[in-house]
Design a protein around this nucleic acid. Structure first.
Length: 425
RNA sequence: GCGGGCGUAGCCAAGUGGUUAAGGCAGUGGUUUGUGGUACCACCAUUCGUGGGUUCAAGUCCCAUCGUCCGCCCCA
């Protein structure tokens, strides 16, 4: 048997209701904030990610699906969305429209990793980018939209962690201070952290190794090494969040894994997900547009992991099912033909109609009608076919009434009201 | 990439070397050939993820492989 590749998954009808709920909530919430959807290619030139995300990051270093296409061009399945949005922003000269660009996207991303709960090789994100604004209000708006979406989905037990990684100069200065602090402890650090000491010392703060954590505890904090301007930006963002009644905690160890982040970095986490706890991650990336060849453009954004959101929603509510309102039971050649026509007409009139195609005994068809969750049956046998009528049977009460087929559509308003009243919530 | 757990029908499972692989849900047929929801009856794995091996005998032990889950790592 040929099966789906490791780390990929089928999303079956029993699960897809959650996805649709998330998509509808995102579309509505972001629509109200006047963000525009953007749809982008799933693969790009490898150089886009190498330059955008950073050569030293794990994502670029060991997790990309990279291959050469005919003609030797190196292409990569996108491991995240921001680099592509920025590429499109530059290529289509969206900056020429002036003002800010508010964009969102959704779709599959690809990273070659060991699969785990909440972690696939093909996974899905919905993400948002606000380009062309350096005001702290932009950071706050973007974070508020993320918490809105999660709240409207009914999710509880979420925590917002926030930190500032400053601008390039702040970071260089902090990096030196951190290395200076860590060097005496070099031999006490875990293996990964030793490797990172020169390459990417900020990530050491994130280590889960107990001894390393102990050392990191007393490390200098980046917020103490920010320039006045950076500090002011961070404080303002925090203030604005408080004004919006958004609870946060400053996490001095929060350092995101992609190189392009500047100033604000944040994560929304859940305790109900195991090791892959981050539902939403994002931050400001003031240097990326320029780095990729565009004009100097400040920007801020985030991405939400859809699979992780689905996992949380599944703990909260059952999958919305699509039940028919009307179920058509028919038997006999003429009746079956008429049933098909009625089904089409009723569907066009706005009813959810399931047609029993089995041709089996009436008893069996009624049994299926029951299980389908339908409110009423339309029954057609030889007698009804002969008289061009139909038996309308209400399944809860068992009441039946004979109706001329030609009268059925004229009654549709009345039927809709009655069905709505009888529908199971 | 590293370490560990698991893999019996569509789903949940019992089974711990002795030969017919429990049970439940779902499904199909019947009691009921024009009327359902209940009940009862029957059917539903020559086979235990896959491939090798050990043994007189393997779902049960060993090896490999695939998948899945947990942790590391990474991140959404």
């Amino acid at each position: 048997m040929i099966q789906a590749l490791r780390g990929t998954r089928d999303i079956l009808p029993e699960e897809v209701g959650y996805w649709q709920l998330i998509e509808a909530t995102v579309r509505e919430t972001l629509g109200r904030a006047v963000y525009q959807e953007i749809r982008l290619p799933i693969f790009e030139q490898t150089a886009l990610f190498e330059r955008g995300i950073g050569e030293a990051t794990d994502v670029v270093g060991k997790e990309m699906y990279t291959f050469s296409s005919r003609g030797d061009k190196s292409i990569t399945l996108r491991p995240e969305g921001t680099a592509g949005v920025v590429r499109a922003f530059i290529q289509n000269k969206l900056h020429a429209q002036g003002g800010v660009q508010r964009l969102w996207y959704t779709g599959p991303m690809f990273r070659y990793e060991r699969p785990q709960a909440g972690r696939q090789r093909q996974f899905h994100q919905v993400g948002l980018e606000l380009l062309g604004c350096d005001a702290p209000r932009a950071d706050a708006e973007v974070i508020a939209l993320a918490t809105d979406i999660l709240q409207r989905l009914g999710l509880k037990n979420l925590e917002l962690d926030i930190n500032s990684v400053g601008n390039g100069a702040d970071r260089a200065q902090y990096r030196a201070a951190l290395i200076n602090y860590l060097e005496p402890y070099q031999n006490d650090l875990d293996e990964d952290s030793k490797d990172r000491l020169m390459r990417n010392p900020l990530r050491i703060l994130d280590s889960k190794d107990p001894r390393t954590q102990e050392i990191a505890q007393n490390a200098p904090k980046i917020t103490e090494h920010l320039s006045l301007e950076s500090k002011k930006h961070f404080d303002t963002v925090l203030n604005l969040l408080s004004n919006l009644n958004i609870k946060y905690q400053i996490n001095h160890c929060l350092v995101r894994g992609l190189d392009y982040y500047t100033h604000t970095a944040f994560e929304i986490k859940s305790d109900d997900l195991g090791a892959q706890a981050t539902v939403c991650g994002g931050g400001r990336y003031d240097g990326l547009v320029k780095e990729l060849g565009g004009p100097e453009t400040q920007a801020v954004g985030w991405a939400i992991g859809m699979e992780r959101l689905v996992l949380l929603l599944q703990q909260l509510k059952s999958n919305p099912v699509i039940a028919p309102e009307l179920y058509i039971v028919s038997r006999g050649e003429a009746a079956e033909a008429q049933g098909l026509i009625l089904a089409q007409k009723l569907r066009n009139a706005g009813f959810a109609v399931e047609l029993d195609l089995s041709g089996s005994a009436f008893g069996k068809q009624f049994k299926r009608a029951d299980r389908s969750g339908a409110v009423a049956c339309l029954v057609l046998g030889d007698a009804e076919a002969e008289s061009k009528s139909v038996n309308l049977k209400w399944l809860a009460s068992g009441e039946q009434q004979a109706i001329a087929q030609s009268d059925l559509l004229g009654m549709s308003q009345e039927l809709k009201v009655k069905i709505a009243g009888l529908k199971k919530p």
